[in-house]
Design a protein around this nucleic acid. Structure first.
Lengths: 249, 249
DNA sequence: ATCGCCGCTTGACCTGGATCAATGACGGCC
DNA sequence: GGCCGTCATTGATCCAGGTCAAGCGGCGAT
């Protein structure tokens, strides 16, 4: 079964479950409403939102070129967003963990610039786009949160663009992954990689072999322990120093 | 005088000038209102907006770490946004031409993640952030436009992150610059580079020498003509083919 | 007009990471 | 249980682009 991560997540999140009919992953996981919120707005959010899935490994959620009809949030599992490059090359812009939003880059042109593909069996929330913007227009807190999500994506994309060594990239990747797991209530220093080496390499702009060697070097230093897809971050301080400027402040 | 480009722009834009007290660069250049708009909303936009400048070459508009109080739009001149890297390295995430928005990446954390520095004497519009979001909350068309601007930045940042050859990067850079000039009513195929080689190289993640050689190769092919900061794109078709996946659809 | 500075170009060399190739370790399937 | 396809690691080689080091030309200052 390849749903290990997915089910783990679901349990973690659904522990305090779908309180009163609401999907906590969507509402609180997205932090659409950081502090507390009008009950009526919650109801409205509920209305523009629909649960979809499962998408099994390799299944496509949307394809590049399709008109933007809806944005998606991951409830469980993992997605990747894939841009087509020249000569059949493709580039993985990001991985999306539970509570994270997918498709924001489509707003600009009104159509998706990339494919979204399940890396590990995924369940999603689907937000009808027009209704969502109508809603955020009436709820300033939500509008601002949506802006914040977009703005965050700009930041992370920019970080990948700088020129950094393979070890820096890998260290930063691990740290960020850990932080994102932590945000979901999992361990920040011990986790399973939801994706294979090839995908990691592609995402970081490296060859799979280089990722392997980088893992090797970091392990050599005693800063991490990698065994297949299980990772332990032993010296977060050193990794952090290495990753340096590659991490969001 | 180093305001050659700046003054050229100003003339082009201010030809149909500040109609009825409005800054056309801000309102229409930003395309906050693509088609037509309520006069009252225009008045409100006017209220949250203030003209500032000039910022002379090298002058700082905001610094990394400062709390986000306002967003900026370029009226004339050119800005660059600079991220601090490790070991004193710095990375230019983008250049900002008249009509373009600066500072959007700050929304996420509420503080600027980068410096904004004038590349060429610049005049700006300053939008008080809280008032701006309050306004967009009441004007759905503006909200959507703001979302679109953010989304576009995600797209362009992602493109730079892929792995592409030096020639591809340079070709894409020139084409995009041309398009942006064209959007301001200037020639898409003949223009002056507002920034030096060092800045171009840094932005593209290359060494200045490599940019120079790439220019050389493209010129060799007869696809461009470069003389100092003057550029002519002679074979846009070939450049486009080269730039390929590095360009927004 | 001359000088000096700085940005651009050009050449020679070096290196990090890509590429190619071979081997080992799982996991799925019959 | 044995077979095979996929994925990860490891070693050997190659190359695009970085680095170092001169030249060159334009422009501002005196």
């Amino acid at each position: 079964m390849d749903t290990r991560v997915g089910t783990g997540k679901e349990r973690a999140v659904n522990g305090h479950g779908e309180t009163g009919g609401f999907c906590t992953t969507c509402v609180f996981g997205l932090q659409f409403v950081p502090h507390g919120i009008d009950r009526s707005l919650l109801d409205e959010l509920q209305l523009v939102m629909r649960h979809v899935g499962p998408f099994r490994r390799g299944a496509v959620v949307f394809r590049a070129g399709e008109p933007l009809r809806a944005l998606y949030a991951v409830r469980s599992g993992v997605l990747k967003t894939v841009y087509a490059g020249s000569a059949g090359r493709e580039y993985i812009a990001g991985f999306h963990l539970p509570g994270e939003m997918v498709g924001l880059a489509a707003i600009h042109a009104g159509r998706f610039p990339c494919d979204a593909v399940a890396v590990d069996t995924a369940y999603l929330c689907r937000f009808e786009f027009r209704s969502l913007t109508a809603l955020t227009a009436r709820a300033p807190a939500m509008q601002e949160q949506l802006l914040r999500l977009l703005s965050r994506d700009i930041g992370s994309a920019i970080l990948l663009a700088g020129d950094h060594s393979a070890d820096e990239r890998v260290a930063a990747f691990l740290i960020r992954l850990g932080r994102r797991f932590a945000a979901r209530g999992c361990s920040a220093s011990e986790f399973r990689l939801p994706m294979g080496r090839r995908d990691i390499a592609n995402h970081l702009g490296l060859a799979p072999e280089t990722v392997s060697r980088a893992f090797g070097r970091l392990q050599q230093q005693g800063w991490i322990r990698v065994r297949e897809r299980s990772v332990s971050l032993l010296r977060a301080d050193e990794l952090l120093r290495l990753a340096g400027a590659l991490l969001p402040a």
